[in-house]
Amino acid sequence: MIDVAAYLVFFLCLALIYGLVCLGLNLQWGFAGLFNVGVVGFFIVGAYTVAILASPAAADRVGGFGLPIPLALLAAMAAAGLVAFVVGIPTLRLREDYLAIATFGIAVTIQLVALNWETLTGGTHGRVSIPRPLASVFVDRVNANLFFLAVTLAVVGTADWALERMVRSPWGRVLRAIREDETAAGALGKNAFAYRLQAFVIGSALMGLGGGLYASFIGYVGADDALPTLTFQIWVMLIVGGSGNNKGALIGAVSVWGLWSFSGWFMAAVLPSAFAVRAGALQVILIGLVLATVLLLRPKGLVGEEAVVSRGARVE
């Protein structure tokens, strides 16, 4: 029973971290209609930023400044946001598919950097000894995980609260107006490019924050964490939960991560270890079929887009 509870805490930490990434994607796609196929790129930039800034110094590695985690997390958001800014400038003026192709490209490029720039990223060995917040206080494993869950909950809660305020503000209204009809919004004097760029940078910063939390939680980040499978998982979470709805994004993250973890555990229990590669393949196929089913049968997702109105206004 204790084991189950301890696992549940561990599971929820990861699920909520992915939920945070999913909230970032929801701002981009659900509210601004921006198609980011490079989620993992922004995630991993955040993860390495925390690894470089917060871990203790190590030989033949750049960084190791031992900065406090909160500072490192802020830097992770800034770094991922900066990457988004640079990618956004040439692509956000073009047709939506170009952003998809360009973000896919940046994620592939960042994956190569993760793999090959060893002094910065540790290459295939990755970067280790990334501390958790208040690691000296919460030494016991169970308590440490519980405390981290509390931290994650606080971060996700804050992000959710801030995003809800933002999408209900005039800023959020313009964002949805541009998504629905760019010409009409333009005729009202709204600069679509600027709003898109803001939403893209803020969403990517949240992905970077998720990556930073992940690095701190696991204590390690390596090139294996930069695979495009993560982008796919986050998208499935958003589509299953219902894009355009922050609660949906979080529900999608917990349920899809639950399905992913359970199917992984089940296949490891049933199949002999020689089939590990094939079991991993089956897991991706399963999630892919879930995505296809939801897209075909329930394109609005479990929750669907919520009618968002300004504070004080009422929906009939």
């Binding site: 796609w29 998809a100 499978t229 796919f232 892919g288 897209l295």
Partner: peptide, 14 residues
């Protein structure tokens, strides 16, 4: 339009 793109991304992995 984007349902096709994300659908294709999923189909690719499957």
């Amino acid at each position: 339009a984007i349902a096709s793109v994300i659908g294709a991304f999923g189909a690719a992995l499957v």
